[in-house]
Write a protein that binds this DNA or RNA. Structure first.
Lengths: 216, 216
DNA sequence: AATAATTTGACCAAGGTGGTCATCGGTGCT
DNA sequence: AGCACCGATGACCACCTTGGTCAAATTATT
């Protein structure tokens, strides 16, 4: 086995484990592997230095664990995709909501995986590159599988349209993330989120879809 | 005067000065003020430590100089905006090209100013916050001044449409920046850039504009 | 009360930090 | 050639942070 985690980390209760994971992710995404400080991580996670190195035998081990944990989260996101939904907007809408829920629990997972690709520390690079590429390839394959492209206007450059859609979702997602913590009720936020997104979606559908498919 | 730069930095030839400025910007944007290493900067700029501290009396001085230099570049970008062009797409297109030219010369200025806002080092924070907000406020004011909004569809949420446009431009700009150095001829790149952007613009115009204004 | 399991933080050697300054090398003048 | 000038250099400094350790303290279990 490549990564060996001492069993005592699993014995921790969920809250504390997530606190540590999030503290580590935050520090790694902010500073990269080399410059990430274990001192900062333990401070943020409110545990002692000794404990961290009891749970993980080295900084590298911690990184690898947190990385693989993040990968798992994405994988689970993929599993949830409903392949019977053939409308691109509806499918992406659903994924977007799931992402929001994940970001509520793990605020920097997506940033972490995005940043991990350009991690230049030789110590962790190989572990990353082999996985991340595969993950993203699988992701885009699943996400766009069985989509009904016949709804799109004939003279539309669909690839570019999808790029626009992605950039818009990303921008909107960022904006929403900034507001996420002003809501105490996550269900209420989800509702608000969906309602606002629909307006953006409608604008794009107007251009992407044939007339008869514009309104859902 | 708040920032006093020893005159010998001005005496340097343009190439070297830009090399130093870019090296500093790169390091600051990658690591923030506190963690930015002057050792890394001198290595990247191919000058000695002594020289750097001959040109600037401290790391803070260097930061402030580079920051104000970046602000100037943005200001100049604003000056160039042609206010007689009332078509939003045409105006943004023009700004986009200018930005590309700037990014060729100073690859990280925009990232630097974007990152500077969330700089948490108390030492430089106050210098930043007072300026950046003003800059962006002035920017959006100029950019959207005298735009002919009558071209837009009546039932369109113009504010949201402009957000989509911005996110799309940002996404496309990033994509283009990644390709910018594969072109040796900047003029050729500009042409290619414009041609590709037009396709994206056309997709959005289809949704934003009334029928009669779609094709330029 | 006794034992086992966890957590703690002072401590370490190693390495990096911003900044200094005696020395160097080149250029131009006499 | 000899001299004076000046920008460039990098070894050097005191200080700080680093990843990781471990004896001692605390808590949990018997």
């Amino acid at each position: 086995m490549v990564t060996e985690i001492k069993s005592n980390f699993y014995k921790l209760n969920d809250d504390k484990r997530e606190l540590i994971i999030n503290a580590a992710i935050k520090e790694f995404v902010q500073n990269g592997f080399d410059k990430a400080s274990t001192n900062e991580i333990v401070k943020e996670a409110q545990i002692s230095k000794g404990s961290l190195f009891n749970y993980f035998k080295s900084k590298k081990d911690l990184y690898v664990y947190v990385f693989e944990y993040s990968v798992q989260i994405i994988e689970q996101l993929y599993e949830q995709i409903d392949l019977t939904e053939t409308d691109l907007f509806k499918r992406l809408e659903h994924i977007g909501i799931q992402k929001m829920y994940i970001q509520k629990k793990y605020p920097h997972v997506f940033d972490f995986l995005a940043q991990s690709v350009q991690e230049d520390s030789a110590e962790v690079k190989e572990i990353i590159n082999s996985k991340v590429d595969a993950i993203y390839a699988r992701g885009t394959k699943i996400i766009y599988q069985d989509i009904d492209y016949s709804k799109f206007r004939e003279d539309l450059d669909i690839e570019k349209a999808i790029e626009i859609l992605n950039w818009t979702m990303f921008g909107f997602g960022e904006k929403a993330t900034r507001q996420i913590n002003t809501f105490e009720d996550m269900a209420e936020f989800g509702e608000q989120y969906l309602k606002e997104w629909e307006i953006y979606a409608e604008i794009l559908k107007y251009s992407f879809y044939k007339n008869e498919f514009r309104v859902n």
